[in-house]
């Protein structure tokens, strides 16, 4: 029986590690949806950019490469997001939402090729940072330290987000913009700046997800396409605009993936949709959604 406990615990942690990467992407996506009403298909590309940038910083032959990358890469991606928002997305806010969808779809195509042009076609492999090498072993149970690191980062960022949204001026503006951006505008607040900030925050979070995933997954163009669909599912479950919902949704999906293969090995994905469809049909705003879009 000893063995089984460690098996289930491992499976649980696997689900959690998976969930935390999803949470980072979905939280940005959901805030963007809540505040701007923009379904950002290029969000997966920010995830990809994060992964490519950490690859570049892994070339530095110094143990600090990971921390340098972790600090700067998301800032670079956030800056890039700012440019996209300010120059391409902003002119579209007055128009039908469909156009923002198309624009961001266009950017997913462009960025997929752009990373090829910049980084070339050779396979990119990012090592595990030396600090997180190895496994934590307690009796029969043994688990990779790096996965534990990912699991720890998720809630930390969750708290950080909660702090930004609830305890800072910027957060108050974001929440106000989500409720009624026209009113905010009338009050003399520069709503455009709030929107840009939200977009940059989303890009920052998504690229962090890419950085955390890079040592375990492959760094390649198109890696955003798959993650974005899972993130959407998380957003649907949690409710658009709710980062708490994104957290719960991500954990649910992570668990379904980890434990689903115990029941229907090759059909595990179907459990995810078995969860999503009723939610969309019965409670389209998701478990925690408040904003009406």
């Amino acid at each position: 029986m000893e063995l089984d406990v460690s098996f289930w615990l491992t499976q649980f942690l696997n689900g959690l590690a998976n969930a935390m990467v999803l949470f980072l992407i979905a939280s940005g996506l959901t805030i963007l949806l809540g505040v701007l009403g923009v379904l950002n298909l290029a969000h997966g590309s920010f995830y990809m950019l994060g992964a490519f940038l950490i690859f570049s910083s892994s070339i530095i032959k110094n143990p600090s490469w990971f921390w340098v990358g972790l600090l700067f890469a998301p800032l670079v991606v956030a800056g890039f997001g700012t440019i996209i928002e300010a120059f391409c997305l902003r002119p579209l806010y007055g128009r039908e939402r469909l156009y923002t969808l198309l624009l961001t779809y266009g950017f997913t195509l462009i960025l997929d090729d752009l990373v090829l042009l910049i980084w070339g076609r050779d396979y990119k492999s990012v090592p595990i940072p030396a600090l997180f090498e190895g496994r934590l072993t307690i009796g029969d149970f043994s688990y990779p330290v790096y996965f534990l690191f990912i699991i720890a980062v998720g809630p930390l960022l969750g708290v950080f987000l909660w702090f930004i949204l609830n305890r800072t001026n910027f957060g108050k503006l974001i929440r106000a913009a989500a409720t009624d951006s026209e009113m905010l505008d009338a009050l003399g607040v520069n709503v455009n700046r709030v929107f840009t900030g939200v977009f940059a925050l989303g890009a920052w979070l998504a690229s962090l997800g890419g950085i955390l995933a890079a040592p375990m997954r492959s760094v390649e163009p198109g890696m955003g396409v798959e993650i974005i669909i899972e993130s959407f599912i998380v957003v649907i479950i949690g409710g658009m605009g709710s980062y708490l919902g994104a957290f719960v949704g991500a954990v649910l999906i992570g668990m379904l993936k980890a434990f689903g293969i115990e029941i229907l090995e090759n059909f595990a994905m179907i459990f995810i949709y078995a969860l999503v469809l009723p939610i969309l049909i019965l409670r389209p705003r998701g478990l925690f959604g408040e904003t009406t879009i």
Binding site: L33, G37, L39, R97, I229, F232, I233, I236, M240, N266, F267, M269, I270, Y273, V276, L277, L280, I281, P284, R285, I293
Partner: peptide
């Protein structure tokens, strides 16, 4: 029957989810 009751992004999401269900079934 389920989709038309929703509007805007929710409609888009539900159609997306339905199509992904069918994709998953066809794939596996």
């Amino acid at each position: 029957v389920f989709c038309v009751r929703l509007a805007g992004l929710y409609f888009a999401m539900l159609t997306l989810a339905f199509s992904q269900v069918v994709y998953t079934v066809a794939y596996y």
